[in-house]
């Protein structure tokens, strides 16, 4: 990421990231529609939706809710910057988690029971996937000798070679973060679930748009993170990331939503076991 105008490039990336995220989510919707035998919306539909949300009259239940929406976005952008700048992975995780936590607090500060239960479930999800992300950072440290997220770029071997099982576990985390079907228990993109819209139920208009934009950043972050697994050749990394996204669409369409406890059991047995095995292998090889 060292160019003649690093700040310019950074600003450009930060600006482009949400559009990239929106585009990815548009492609996701299109692919989902095709997988269901529908035509589906135009690829830039998420962009239209967000722009429309931004133009709506803001309705808020309390001011603190708005603060949390902004915090959610701000921390997400910060996490994105840390990732792009190749900063400390643990720091990135912390900021990333704080962003989600802001969202949870935003869901908690209203009186709607749906929103509150959604927040509780989101916390449970965080408890379920954070260990895997931390193990992933430990894996990166073991493989590259550094917690820096820039390290995969200079490493000799692609990260995927050292962390194949952790990559699989990361894909599961990705499915959770993208609110894909077996794991979309806290909130989901289509409001068809027991919690109506769960976590983001009480947000409307521009503040919902903020959360949407944050989600676009989140998608961009996840995409970038998958690319890290093959950072030595970004073209291969790009293909890998695209394949992962396609896999997410497949999973979304081939699964029903499962229960909170199932997700928790799965994460703390299956996914965690995968991650731990990988770490142990790194230690003892």
């Amino acid at each position: 990421m060292i160019t003649s105008h690093p700040l310019m490039l950074l600003a450009l990336l930060t600006l482009i990231a949400p559009f990239w995220g929106a585009l990815l989510s548009g492609i996701d919707r299109k692919l989902t529609a095709r997988a269901q035998g529908r035509i589906g919306p135009p690829v830039i539909q998420p962009l239209y939706d967000t722009l429309k949300l931004l133009r709506k009259t803001p309705i808020v239940l309390n001011r603190i809710q708005v603060v949390y929406a902004y915090l959610h976005l701000a921390f997400m952008v910060l996490a994105f910057l840390l990732l792009v700048l190749g900063q400390d992975g643990l720091m990135f995780l912390f900021v990333f988690a704080f962003s989600t936590l802001s969202l949870v607090l935003g869901g908690m500060c209203v009186r709607s029971p749906y929103s509150r239960i959604g927040s509780q479930r989101e916390i449970l999800l965080m408890v379920a996937y954070e260990p895997i992300l931390i193990l992933l950072m430990i894996g990166i440290y073991k493989a590259n000798g550094s917690f820096l997220l820039g390290s995969p770029f200079v490493a000799a071997k692609p990260l995927l070679m050292a962390l194949p099982l952790l990559f699989l576990a990361f894909l599961v985390v990705m499915a959770i973060k993208l609110q894909k079907s077996p794991f979309d228990i806290a909130t989901s993109h289509h409001a068809h679930q027991e919690l109506v819209k769960g976590l983001t139920l009480e947000y409307a208009g521009p503040y919902l748009a903020l959360i949407e934009i944050a989600h676009f950043y989140e998608i961009a972050i996840l995409f970038y993170f998958v690319m890290l697994f093959w950072a030595s050749n970004l073209a291969i990394g790009f293909v890998l990331a695209c394949a992962s996204f396609f896999l997410m669409v497949l999973i979304d369409n081939a699964f029903a939503r499962l229960t909170t406890m199932w997700v928790f059991r799965f994460m703390w047995t299956g996914a965690l076991l995968l991650a731990l095995t990988n770490i142990l292998w790194l230690y003892f090889r």
Binding site: T32, A35, Q36, G37, R38, S181, D184, S188, H190, H192, Q193, N253, A254, F255, A256, R257
Partner: peptide, 15 residues
């Protein structure tokens, strides 16, 4: 199918 979030099945059954 829709009630447990299986949108795909829902669409196809209705098709």
């Amino acid at each position: 199918a829709d009630s447990f979030g299986f949108e795909n099945l829902f669409m196809q059954l209705w098709r």
